[in-house]
Structures are given as C-alpha cells and as structure tokens.
Design a binder for these strands. Structure first.
Lengths: 72, 72
DNA sequence: GTATAATGTAATATATACATTACATAGAGG
DNA sequence: CCTCTATGTAATGTATATATTACATTATAC
C-alpha cells in the first residue's frame, strides 16, 4: 500500500528518527509505513500528517482504480 | 475521535449493515467507528471512503486544534 | 400491541499494529 | 580504511482492531 510519506518527511527535512519522536512512535514504525509494509491506524496517520504539515489525502489517499489492484 | 462517517453513510442512503457488506467488515465495526470508539486502520478508512464516495479528509480529517484536545 | 428493521453494545477469540532489542547495510567525511 | 548517521529489517512480546455470537432498545408499520 503505497503512500507519499517519505516525500513529505524529506520535504520537512526530518529524519525517520525525528519524525518518529514528534509522532511518538518508534523509527521502525515510520520505516515500515514508508515502505508500505504496515497498515497504520487512523490516529497514527493523523499524527503523522500534522507532524509533516500535510492532510490525509495528500499523504495517504489512494484512488479507486489503484485501490482495486492494491496488493494490500 | 469523532468523524463524519454517519453523515456520509446516511447521505448515500446506506444502513450500517449495507456499508459493512460493501466494505467487507461487520456491522459492529461500522457502528463503533461512527461512535468514535474505534481507531480504524488506514486500509479500512480507504475502503469506507470509496464506498461512500468521499475522501479521507472529508470523512476522517481532524484539525490540529481539535486534535490536541482529542480524547483519543 | 406485536412484528420488523436499524442500531447500540457486551463477552470472548483471533489477527495484527506497534514496541523493544538488536543487527546489518549504505553513504558521507575524516 | 574507520567512524558516524540514516535506514532496512528480523525476532519476540503486548495492546488493540476486528470477528463472532448474542441480546437490548428504538422507531416504524401493520
């Protein structure tokens, strides 16, 4: 499940470690989310979005078409 | 953690049961999410959004201010 | 006033998000 | 080279999202 987190994070000049601390999770969690290997909770998505100054749609939205073929 | 799911669902003329079936979860899960008692996963949020023809921001976004005081 | 549909919610079980600890790799700079 | 920073990822444990089953409440319609 791909997302725009890495781009958003780098744009904010944050390392995974720094973002993890702002959000209150571990670096591993951030890494796995960026890699599309985790299915994060809404609460965590919202925390991340506020930390990188973006909205849910900007970071996590997936269009219906791509959604259908998503590996999940 | 409040959201706009109930409004979106009723707008689409769907019962909790019908939405649950479209999305592939149980009615209880939909009910609890509407009541703000569950912290759904991103994947489920996306499925729900596609089912009610709305985006993540429209259904699940919470502004920074409200976020700070959220009971979670 | 009793069926029926829609919703709330409780108890228990299972799957999985996330933490913790730890190690490995790649790149930059000395 | 060696060191340090940033990142990937594996193993194991814990918390919690979600399923299952079941019962209660409310409103509508007959």
């Amino acid at each position: 499940m791909q997302n725009q987190l890495k781009i958003a994070r780098v744009t904010m000049n944050l390392t995974q470690q720094q973002l993890a601390e702002k959000v209150g999770v571990t670096r591993q969690t951030i890494s796995l989310i960026e890699k599309g290997k985790y299915n994060p909770t809404l609460k965590l998505c919202l925390s991340i979005c506020h930390a990188v100054n973006k909205t849910l749609d900007e970071v996590f939205w997936i269009e219906k078409e791509e959604w259908k073929n998503a590996e999940n």
